[in-house]
Design a protein around this nucleic acid. Structure first.
Lengths: 156, 156
DNA sequence: GCTGAAATTCAGCCTCA
DNA sequence: TGAGGCTGAATTTCAGC
């Protein structure tokens, strides 16, 4: 049980954090460029990045794509109110049935879960929310349709 | 004004979509590897990627970091109620002042914006929300603290 | 798409604490 | 032992053509 208490964060020194910062800003930066910024040689940076990936600190590298270009123009956050006391497992199974759900979190407050939905357009969104409502134990929903994306910072 | 009507999506052919798919899976993949997968030479892939970035289809490349490792264990979605009629520009400037805000969207419904906050712990979260409340024109907030992450599907 | 020069990656080796 | 710097070969990038 001791390793539960030893937070993985302990394995990250300031240099690791700087390197992670560089890579979140630009995942395709060369090791030499990162090295210049953090004060290490390119090979030293590579060794640390390899270690961070192997340890699961860095889960991967991805491209940030403008969702509009892919045709996913409609986005909504939906609060879900549950009948009875939901277990995270039930919630996950129920919400996961709707493919348009790209994110879901159980939350404090009057709602039980917050669900992020991506759809092609408003009729598609409406239909997806309808399917969400028909999931067992989903009692009520309250939707907020995204008008515009204001901030979308990469994780630090 | 005509180029406003011409949706960027029109400029994406199946090859572009395949390349975007590769880069979403691994932003550090070499052009040669991508080329093997989509049936192009490395220079041809590079030219397309450069064009996709220049056109804003690809907004950047980032590393996916395990938030728990960084110690950002506390997450909340905050509805922001605005005094008067907010412009997206004002909203962005106001909300962007708080570094803990990692995402923000203007939304329909009673709230004006939905804000995603990451913090180290509950006191840090409380302090960040307090700073959010003190931004000019922010009238009221309603927070939902995330208890657990149920679904986090990668964007298509 | 091909080519070739420049840049980058990356494994092996050495050094230091 | 572990972490960094250096070196040089293999690979990748990238600007002509």
């Amino acid at each position: 049980m001791l390793d539960v208490l030893q937070r993985p964060v302990d394995r990250l020194d300031p240099l690791d954090r700087q390197i992670i910062g560089c890579l979140t800003r630009d995942a395709r930066a060369t090791y030499a460029v990162i090295g210049d910024e953090v004060g290490l040689s390119a090979p030293a940076v590579k060794r640390r990045v390899d270690r961070l990936v192997a340890d699961g600190v860095i889960r991967g590298f991805t491209a940030l794509v403008d969702p509009e270009v892919l045709g996913w123009t409609t986005e909504a956050y939906v609060e879900v109110f549950w009948e009875g006391t939901p277990s995270p497992l039930e919630l996950r199974r129920s919400l996961g049935e709707v493919p348009e759900v790209v994110g879901a979190w159980s939350v404090t407050g009057s709602a039980d879960a917050l669900v992020h939905i991506l759809a092609a357009d408003i009729p598609h969104l409406e239909e997806a929310i309808e399917r969400l409502r028909q999931q067992p134990n989903v009692h009520q929903t309250r939707s907020e349709v995204v008008l515009s994306r204001l901030i979308d910072r990469a994780r630090p």
